[in-house]
Write a protein that binds this DNA or RNA. Structure first.
Length: 491
RNA sequence: GGCGACAUAGCCAAGUGGUAAGGCAGAGCUCUGCAAAAGCUCCAUUCGCCGGUUCGACUCCGGCUGUCGCCUCCA
């Protein structure tokens, strides 16, 4: 079976055929660091991270480029509001994004070009477009002449005609251009704005042109897959296609346009004004990154997705369950293993079943279901070779970019995660008769006091202590080998 | 107004022209001092509504309704 992907350009599912045998080039529109990265960013980049991992697993040599648009109107506005230099804004939010990307386990792009460092490539394209007569200089910039028919295929990607698009244009924009649909390739400097030199005087690139320049420079005139979130289809990608294809004369610039669905929060579009905008950093502080990843894997990447506290809690429990079953299989494999035996290879047949889901337009949700069933059934079926199942499941987790066990996924309690609030600390320190002990020591003291009570069959005291721990956010469970505890909701 | 996506159990969510994966929640039982955890079992005669095609549709076609998104701020 071969990979099939939904191509927004043709609105159909197509077999993936690379331009060069064995290679795949992907360009994904990355961050504009003008504000905090949010969950929607995470969803988009996780989607392409999994696509990339799957292509690699299928034997392609993948070149993945994800740009940074580090100059645009919003960055300038933000800087003006805060009264700081524009590049302070960029470095602040870019650093925040990179920290999040690392926590999410996103593979590092092969190239991460930044618009401001690619000015000559940008100016070259604008120049070329002007020379071809597809663009013109006006009082405030250089514009692409959509309305004069510079690009006959304009609108094909977003499947709208020029007339339809024109009808949709809202308020008259105060730009000095000939046609309403014409868009800026280069913006001449206004006072106080950052500038770069150009044949049209100091200024800065318009939005869209940077991607045309960087995709060509770091990949080629024509690439296999161009990705981004669905909200970029128009105008960003439409304009990008117009620029690149007019400039290079090669069609199409991207064989596949792959768009990730947008994310809603509590049923509504995420926005600052609705007050449901949560920086990604805060989400990752609250939930393990692996849970965020698992949550999005459970949804088709093209579908609109709704984020709620319930949905991520359920995802966390589902992932924990998977890891628990896997641990049980590991234990079985260990007890069955002959001394000195090597760990076995994954089952090719099972792996193929898993990959078949991903081949089907990256059906991660189906693949998750398959993996849950595979692990659960293997656990019930004593006849299955546990070590092979474990090896196979680990491969699947790697395809997903998920850690191989609960501990590395940050799902188990560790001493550093014990943080008692004031009231809880007070209560436990009274019970323990300790004032100076660390949070961790306090918890352990109370646990052992409870153990003593249980040995003495003083159930009332034992339950009292368990309740106190529960109020402090510590869950206790008694096992044959003694009491185990965990930070609530963590394990 | 134009363009599009989606509509499957309490929630999330796969899927197929031949009779509904999985997760969460819930219920019962086992275990347990009681819990928790774990194990076992159960949980959509039905896939928004109405027509059509078909031996047969949730799956294909047409219409309707609803939700959401895009139409130069957007990942």
């Amino acid at each position: 079976m071969a990979l099939r992907l939904y191509n927004s350009r043709t609105r159909s599912l197509e077999p993936f055929a690379p331009l060069q045998a064995g290679r795949a080039s992907i360009y994904v529109c990355g961050m504009t660091p003008s504000f905090h990265p949010h969950l929607g960013h995470a969803r988009t980049f996780l989607t392409f991270d999994v696509l990339r991992r799957h292509l690699m697993a299928r034997g392609y040599e993948v070149t993945y480029v994800q740009n940074v648009t580090d100059i645009d109107d919003r960055i300038i506005e933000r800087a003006a509001t805060e009264g700081v230099p524009w590049d302070d804004i960029v470095s602040r939010y870019l650093a925040e994004y990179e920290a999040c990307a690392q926590r999410l386990g996103l593979l590092k792009p092969d190239h991460e070009p930044r618009a401001t460092r690619e000015m000559s490539a940008i100016v070259d394209i604008v120049n070329g477009l002007v020379q071809k007569g597809a663009a013109y200089e006006s009082g405030d910039g250089v514009y692409f002449a959509v309305e004069e028919g510079a690009f006959p295929h304009y609108g094909e990607l977003s499947h709208q005609s020029i007339d339809e698009l024109r009808a949709g244009v809202r308020v008259a924009v105060r730009e000095d251009k000939r046609g309403r649909l014409d868009f800026a390739l280069w913006k001449k400097a206004k006072p106080g704005e950052p500038t770069w030199p150009s044949p049209w005087g100091p200024g800065r690139p318009g939005w869209h042109i940077e991607c045309s320049a960087m995709a060509r420079k770091y990949l080629a005139d024509q690439i296999d897959i161009h990705g981004g979130a669905a909200d970029l289809i128009f105008p960003h990608h439409e304009n990008e296609v117009a620029q690149t294809e007019t400039y290079t004369g090669k069609v199409p610039m991207a064989n596949f346009w792959v768009h990730a669905g947008l994310l809603n929060v509590d049923g509504q579009k995420m926005s600052k004004s609705l007050g449901n905008f949560t920086p990604l950093t805060q989400i990752l502080d609250r939930y393990p990154a692996a849970v965020v990843r698992y949550l999005f894997l459970q949804t088709g990447y093209r579908k609109p997705s709704n984020f709620t506290a319930e949905s991520i809690d359920a995802a966390g429990k589902g992932l924990r369950g998977l890891y628990a079953d896997l641990d049980a299989l590991r234990a079985r494999a260990k007890s069955n293993a002959a001394p000195g035996s090597r760990s076995p290879a994954p089952s090719p047949a099972s792996l193929e079943e898993f990959d078949a889901y991903l081949d089907d337009d990256l059906n991660t949700a189906g693949a998750v279901g398959w993996l849950q069933t595979y692990v659960k059934c293997s656990l019930k079926d004593g006849g299955a070779d546990a070590s092979i199942v474990v090896a196979t499941a680990q491969q699947c987790l790697e395809r997903f970019g998920l850690p191989s066990d609960a501990e590395s996924a940050g799902l188990t309690a560790t001493s550093s995660q014990v943080k008692l609030n004031k009231a809880a600390r007070m209560e436990l320190s009274i019970i323990a008769g300790e004032r100076e002990a660390s949070d961790l020591e306090l918890v352990e003291k109370v646990i052992s006091a409870r153990d003593d009570a249980r040995k003495a069959k003083d159930w009332a005291k034992s339950d009292r202590l368990r309740d106190a721990l529960a109020r402090a956010g510590i869950a206790v469970k008694d096992t044959p080998s003694g009491a185990q505890w965990s930070v609530d909701g963590r394990s």
